[in-house]
Nucleic acid binder design. Sequence first.
DNA 1: CAGGTGTATATAAAGATTATATACACCATT
DNA 2: AATGGTGTATATAATCTTTATATACACCTG
Lengths: 138, 138
Amino acid sequence: MPEEKSTALLIGPVSPAAPGPLYQQIVDGFRRAISEGRLEPGLALPSFRALAEELMVSLITVKRAYEELEREGIVYRRQGIGTFVAEQGDAASRDAKLKTATELFAKAAREAAEAGLNTSEIQELASETIRKTLSDQT
Amino acid sequence: MPEEKSTALLIGPVSPAAPGPLYQQIVDGFRRAISEGRLEPGLALPSFRALAEELMVSLITVKRAYEELEREGIVYRRQGIGTFVAEQGDAASRDAKLKTATELFAKAAREAAEAGLNTSEIQELASETIRKTLSDQT
DNA sequence: CAGGTGTATATAAAGATTATATACACCATT
DNA sequence: AATGGTGTATATAATCTTTATATACACCTG
């Protein structure tokens, strides 16, 4: 039989002491592993119970993490079968981020409009802010 | 003696049943009244106790509302004296909104960058989203 | 039908938010 | 300095949200 690869090695450690909730740590770990291509589409993720035992968390916590990953289109679940990496899980992850970004832009636009700026002034503010923000990144 | 004008008439009704916390309803009411020029700079707001009694809320709730308004630069408080509309409370209100908008733009930019978009693509997304958002407004 | 998979419901523990009462400190006026 | 107004500070309670759990259920494959 093939040697079982540790999931902890793949998605990193998970601990109540670490910042952020447990389920979020699991989500982040898989999201990164999948977006970096370390988990190929169609591959099965560990079962709820297997992962829960390995990470020393409850089954429900794993469920919640997988639900979040499915919500983002990164994996899909099949009752009685298992949970699998989606065909274009990396693209789905990207799309989710884009959607969030778009919503934030819209929200900012409405706020700026309330402050009394006209459309072109808002465009200018956005453009300038984007430029500054991205140049700050090291 | 001059007739006392009801504050409730000025800032609108306040109720635990209404959406949002009580203190926020008070903040919104005064912010709007001031930004619309219905309360002139230098004018005294009702005292903590007077407003608390009229709105049937606790003194602490009024305090919290006034603190928020002061944080935004819309009013200022003087111990032993009272709370007053700031000289340019309307401008301060506007600036607060602009600051929020700028932060949202920055956050959106970072999110889009994480999704893999380059700077000009992000500029384009922002521009398009702003255009759409503002044209939706009736 | 046996043994795996995911699912659903009810519950508990922890934390943040909201609202309160009570006692205190400051200021202007008398 | 006494009085009666103003804002201030601390400790507390009630509520809601988030996070995590246990237990029992439903589905699928062999």
